[in-house]
C-alpha cells in the first residue's frame, strides 16, 4: 500500500521561503492562508549567533485529529495517506482547527478565489498539470489545507510519471526548493527516495510527538 510522505531535512533549509511562495502559487490559497511557511529562530550569541529554519506544512497524520473531529466528513484521509479537505462539504465548524496540534488548517472568511493554473496563463506558459486536476476554487466559510499537491500526484500516477521525482507529479514546495531539503515519496516502499533518505540520515523525527498523531511529514536535523 502506498503511503505518501515527506521528509524535510531542516539542516539543509536556507530559509528562502521559495516553498512558501510556490505553494501559494500552485494552490492559489486564500489571501491570509499559508499552507507551507518556514519558521525561523535565532540560536547562539553574538558573534556566534545563527538563524535556524523549520519548514512546516500539514503533517498528513495517520491518526489525524482533524478527520476525527470533523462533523461533516469534509476531512478524510485517502488510502494513500493524504488528508484532504472537501470545501464543498465543510460547514465551517472549525473543530478541525482546534483539534490540529500544528495549526495546519485555514478558515477562509473572505470572498472566493478562482485558482488559475499556469498552463494556460501568461505569455510564456510554464509546465503544469491540466486544470482538470487542479484545485478550482476556495469556498467562503470553509476550511482549506495543504494536500501534498494531491492534484499533481494524481496526475502523475494516472500518467505514469514517477511521483516525487517528475516535476509534474511532485508537490510544488518540493520541486521549487533550491536546497533540496524536501524529499517526497512512498514511506511504505523501502526502496523509495524518502525511505532511503531516512535510512541514511534518520531516524525521522516529528513535530509535537506528544500529540501521537503519527505524521507522514517527518524531519531530520531538527535542532
Amino acid at each position: 500500500m502506498t503511503r505518501w510522505g515527506m521528509v524535510i531535512d531542516a539542516d539543509r533549509c536556507v530559509g528562502c521561503q521559495a516553498c512558501t511562495v510556490a505553494c501559494k502559487t500552485e494552490n492559489q490559497s486564500p489571501l491570509d492562508a499559508w499552507y507551507a511557511p518556514v519558521l525561523e529562530w535565532e540560536s547562539g550569541e553574538f558573534p556566534d549567533a545563527t538563524l535556524n529554519y523549520l519548514p512546516v506544512l500539514c503533517n498528513h497524520c495517520e491518526d489525524a485529529p482533524c478527520v476525527t473531529a470533523c462533523p461533516s466528513g469534509a476531512l478524510r484521509r485517502r488510502d494513500d495517506g493524504i488528508v484532504m479537505a472537501d470545501e464543498e462539504v465543510c460547514i465551517g465548524s472549525r473543530a478541525c482547527m482546534t483539534a490540529c496540534p500544528y495549526g495546519a488548517l485555514h478558515f477562509f472568511e473572505e470572498r472566493g478565489t478562482v485558482a488559475v493554473h499556469g498552463a494556460s496563463e501568461g505569455p510564456e506558459p510554464v509546465p503544469s498539470v491540466p486544470e482538470a486536476y487542479a484545485h478550482q476554487r476556495h469556498v467562503r466559510g470553509a476550511v482549506s489545507k495543504c494536500t501534498y499537491c494531491a492534484h499533481k500526484i494524481d496526475f502523475g500516477t494516472e500518467n505514469g510519471l514517477e511521483v516525487g521525482v517528475h516535476p509534474l507529479a511532485t508537490p510544488a514546495c518540493v520541486v521549487t526548493c533550491p536546497a533540496e531539503c524536501r524529499i517526497f515519496g512512498d514511506l511504505d516502499n523501502p526502496d523509495s527516495n524518502v525511505s532511503r533518505y531516512l535510512a541514511e540520515r534518520g531516524p525521522g523525527e516529528v513535530l509535537r510527538p506528544d500529540a501521537e498523531t503519527r505524521p507522514s511529514t517527518q524531519y531530520v536535523g531538527l535542532g
Binding site: A10, W41, S43, Y53, R208, G221, L222, G223
Partner: peptide, 10 residues
C-alpha cells in the same frame, strides 16, 4: 510545534 534546542539545528 517544536521545542527548539538553544543550539539550533546548525
Amino acid at each position: 510545534v517544536h521545542i527548539a534546542s538553544p543550539a539550533g539545528n546548525r
